[in-house]
């Protein structure tokens, strides 16, 4: 059994996109260590509702680390101090009794705050819509051995496809760059035969959209890779650069 802990919670409260936000402090008492971070926020919200106060708005959906909906910048790390895990997979046993836990929304010009800890991540959808798909007719289900794909290539593509589009890379980056996300989406197709056909067109369209939406220029600090809950590698960024430069030189 995990111990119960009491701690101070500093939460960013902001009524709307244009409103000025500020931190508010809450005292949390006797929270069991096996409570997830989001459940802890649920407990806080229940308290706030009982006190006739506005609950804290935060994004969440599947709560099992798959959907990419949860965010939260906890104590200086996107998705909190745990590595290779989303906020919903973060448990209170990671914190000590008497700690002060600071919770902030993703901060980036590309992700404006909607309310409190919720940010607007539709910019990622727009980048995906610009080219993150395969539009050629791939026909019906082929035999498994009709198109041989090396195990290492398949693994690499799968690792890139593990990206859940949560935006932690942008939140972690001092340049507000979306390169890790875009490179994962480019790589998962560029590595495979069906995706290669449109690789040049795709990378140009997705980079153009990323730049248009005001994300920053990557300076290879590797903060994205360190904070990514799915451990997506920056080798994908090298692939994106390679594909982009190749495509532009061919034009």
């Amino acid at each position: 059994m995990d111990k119960n802990i009491s701690f101070t919670l500093k939460v960013w409260r902001q009524r709307g996109p244009k409103a000025k936000g500020a931190f508010e402090t809450y005292q949390m008492k006797d929270i069991p260590g096996d409570t997830s971070f989001l459940e802890m926020l649920d407990i806080l919200n229940e308290q706030l509702v009982n006190e006739n106060k506005e609950p804290v708005a935060f994004d969440h959906d599947c709560r099992e680390g798959i959907c990419g909906m949860c965010s939260l910048y906890v104590n200086g790390h996107p998705h909190g101090p745990a590595t290779g895990a989303t906020t919903c997979q973060l448990y209170m046993r990671r914190f000590k009794d008497g700690d002060t836990i600071t919770v902030e929304p993703w901060r980036s010009a590309g992700f404006p705050v909607i309310r409190d800890l919720m940010v607007d991540r539709t910019a990622f959808d727009k980048i995906q819509q610009a080219g993150g798909y395969v539009s050629i007719n791939t026909g019906g289900m082929p035999d498994a051995n009709a198109i041989p794909i090396g195990k290492d290539v398949a693994e690499e593509a799968m690792d890139a496809a593990a990206c859940i589009g949560c935006g932690a890379c942008v939140a972690a980056c001092k340049n507000g760059s979306a390169m890790l996300f875009v490179s994962a989406k480019v790589s998962q197709f560029a590595l495979l035969p069906q995706g290669k056909v449109e690789a040049a067109k795709r990378v140009k369209a997705m980079v153009a959209k990323m730049d248009e939406l005001g994300f920053g220029n990557c300076t290879n600090t590797r903060a994205c890779e360190a904070e990514c809950p799915k451990c997506v590698s920056i080798s994908n960024i090298a692939r994106l650069n390679r594909e982009f430069i190749k495509a532009k030189l061919k034009d």
Partner: peptide, 9 residues
């Protein structure tokens, strides 16, 4: 691109 609001921590 980083935005005007900085992280507190």
């Amino acid at each position: 691109a980083r935005g005007s609001q900085r992280y507190a921590v």
